[in-house]
Design a protein around this nucleic acid. Sequence first.
RNA 1: GCGGGUUUCGCCAAGUGGUUAAGGCCCCGGAUUGUGGUUCCGGUAUACAUGGGUUCGAAUCCCAUAUCCCGCCCCA
Length: 439
Amino acid sequence: MGEIIRVQKGTKDILPADIAVWHKMEASALEIFTRAGYKEIRTPIFEATELFKRGVGDTTDIVNKEMYTFEKSERSLTLRPENTAGVVRSYIENGMHRLSAPVKLWYKGAMFRYERPQAGRQRQFHQVGVEMFGIEDPSADAEIILLALNYLKKLGLPNLSVELNTLGCSKCRKEFRALLIETLRPHYDKLCDDCKERFEKNPLRLLDCKVESCKAIFALPEVQKVIQADYTCPDCSLHFEQLKSYLDNVGINYTVNKLLVRGLDYYNRTVFEIKSENLGSQNAVCGGGRYDSLVEQLGGENTPAIGWAMGMERLAALLSEEKEEKLDIYVISNNKLEALKLAERLRALNYSVEFDMAGKKFTKQLEKAAKTAYFAIILGEDELNGGYLTLKNLETAAQIQFPLVNLADFETHTYKFISTNSSEWLQSKLSMLSSGFVM
RNA sequence: GCGGGUUUCGCCAAGUGGUUAAGGCCCCGGAUUGUGGUUCCGGUAUACAUGGGUUCGAAUCCCAUAUCCCGCCCCA
């Protein structure tokens, strides 16, 4: 026996016992996004490394230290660390700018980041996300935030907090950044090591620091004055005000967090996060914002765009456990060929069916049936000789017999009861029998 | 990349220098050769993360490595 091979650090099997919640997330995504006119798109797991360098930004941590990059045939390829760049690439490459705006897309799938695993963080994880292209109006921002909330509501997570901010456009952001750096420069030496690191790279992030000595500096009046002052240009301010007005009018609760900065370079104007208190330190389930210059940056026409992504593992952590689905029918028989044939007939009628392949004794087969299915169909020697089946309701123990030949009729007329309430289903069987319905 | 903790069967777990290393769950079988989910009995034919060391003797003490978990950075 060789040594066993384990899953890689930061990756996980999603086992059958835990899959129900994933089916729920995926089915809800399809339903909610389709309802708002979004179409699913599936792009490749790996892309040219250059796409992420240009798209996500080569000053970001994601690009600098977290990408799974490899060479093949003298090409540099990278496992996608996020999916916005890939979707934008596809949008451009497939000429989607010629479609009538807005172009609305959604996706789900695995992403890869080489990071130290932690609560709510894996190296392979899953995101579900949406992107909308071609609309600059703040109604697009409002719709896409509502879409996130509708999805969370569908999943039964309606009470998460929404944080909102505007980064302004490239011009107003630059001004603010320059002023902030200038104001903080006299205090540079007193900053913590992390903050010194952030000072040039991403000064907006400084303000989020948890170190007391840094907090003290940010509390200084001259620094507060810069933070609180509004440096967004009139156009950006108007956009933000309009968005807030839309949200107010549809009754969405949110808080404006001036310190909210997103770590990806492509964001401008609106950024937002949706957080939960029950997730430990990685508490954002959803993050997104506007990225009006990305399409052009990746070689397309100047196209406004906005989107968000949710971490599915984090969603799953918030969702209560879903029960494992039971089988509709378990066929009990010692004649494997007849059992297989019957199982196939029933499967063709859309039932989920299993039968015994292990050659267990009758009692054991029934025991297995009781654990895994709503109904048992007994196809033993008596039944085979007599040309009938015995149907047993495993909840009530009631059972009835019916002729084998008319199986199709029997099943079509009763299918609708099986998924709702099995007892009702059986009752209906019995009443049809007594009213002379021929099975 | 930097901290702190963890590790005993498929899962949960008792055990702190001398034990055949408890127990529970799950799974399989029997009691019950065609009527279950309760109960009782039995089984899972080399479980102490790995490699060294200390000791007459190590799951237990020491060192190293790995693992997973939790935090920092950052992100979903």
